[in-house]
Design a protein around this nucleic acid. Structure first.
Length: 338
DNA sequence: GCCACCGGTGGC
DNA sequence: GCCACCGGTGGC
């Protein structure tokens, strides 16, 4: 059985003490795209999620134990789910026809199968941690855009669901019947007339998903550079106020470990490329690990459609891990991983 | 021929 | 490990 659907969820819990909402600047409105700048930008839309999101399904349903620690895990999450596994009718929202369109991959290494698609959008209440379904992709994007400064609460959902409160049961739980992934916070809404498409890749691939922007003309753009070129070629959009800061190609992160195949070891060319012995080692290492560990059809624990429990702790945020002084050399990494 | 989907690669 | 970019290609 294959998943053919996926839910998007936003984890809304924030540590209120950490909110300095005024920092969302509207700089970067020029056309010049400089990736280096983006990495160091204060614009959250271009930065790594600054706060860890550890999936905590057990915590989600009993909100008693240390919520203080949960406080800093304020982000958004995507939920991937298989409607066939959860039963029809539990989730009636069909957020986006484009995203929900059944897709089939055709790559040689894959048996033809349905690719996951976003099936619903959900956000976690910053107060009770319960998940609330968001009725549309547009609404979800709107909430996501300012989730750090404007946390989501169950009461927020009253806009489309009268009287809902933290006392109501959650709309969704991380019960293992869906795939969950972490979304990035504070991604700008696409400009009017544009669409931001998230395409989930098949399991066992080299990356989890791709983001495309679809211009009003229908043109699909897949990188900031392409956006920049397109805007330069179509100054009418710039005149309308479309700027680079309205785009982000950040993808969510799957909560399921091993959904994405690990990248094979990359030799440290700078250190050993002069050493013939090391060169041989490199070749043999790559050769021995170059197989396709696709992990497709990995049996679940109970029924075929269900999978092993999904909610391993997610890796720390990049920001924490990306401490240059702590990075292992590639040689060390090779030793560790073998 | 187009394009959606995927892998490779360089950089941090 | 993660991100960003982009080339390749099978299926339509």
């Amino acid at each position: 059985m294959e998943r053919d659907h996926l839910d998007l969820a936003t984890l809304g819990k924030t540590d209120h003490n950490d909110i300095h909402g005024s920092s969302v600047a509207s700089h970067r409105d020029n056309m010049k795209y400089e990736p280096k700048d983006l990495r160091n930008s204060a614009d959250p839309a271009f930065n790594q999620n600054p706060i860890d999101v550890t999936s905590s399904p057990e915590r989600e349903d009993h909100s008693t134990d240390d919520e203080d620690n949960q406080g800093e895990d304020a982000q958004k999450q995507l939920v991937l789910y298989d409607p066939a596994a959860v039963g029809a009718g539990e989730i009636e929202l069909v957020p986006d026809p484009l995203d929900s369109q059944p897709r089939r991959n055709s790559f040689p290494n894959y048996t033809s199968r349905i690719l996951p698609a976003v099936g619903a959008f959900t956000v976690q209440c910053a107060n009770c941690f319960k998940w609330r379904l968001i009725p549309s992709k547009e609404k979800y994007e709107k909430i996501r855009e300012h989730i750090l400064e404007q946390p989501f609460y169950c009461e927020t959902a009253r806009e489309w669901r009268a009287g809902v409160s933290c006392d109501d049961p959650p709309d969704l739980t991380q019960d293992g019947s869906r795939l969950w992934a972490i979304d990035k916070p504070n991604i700008a809404q696409p400009p009017p007339g544009w669409e931001r498409l998230l395409r989930i890749r098949g399991e066992g691939g080299t990356r989890f998903a791709d983001v495309y922007y679809v211009a009003p003309s229908g043109k699909r753009l897949r990188s900031m550079i392409e956006i920049q070129k397109y805007l330069q070629e179509h100054p009418e959009y710039v005149a309308e106020g479309v700027s680079m800061s309205r785009f982000s190609f950040q993808i969510p992160r799957p909560l399921q470990e091993n959904y994405v195949r690990k990248r094979p070891y990359r030799p440290a060319l700078a250190h050993d490329e002069d050493d013939p012995a090391m060169a041989v080692k490199r070749i043999s290492w790559i050769g021995s690990d170059g197989g396709t560990d696709l992990r497709l059809g990995m049996p679940g624990l109970s029924a075929p459609i269900y999978r092993a429990p999904l909610f391993e702790p997610v890796s720390q945020s990049l920001k924490k891990k990306r401490t240059p002084s702590k990075r292992m050399s590639n040689t060390d990494a090779a030793c560790k991983s073998s």
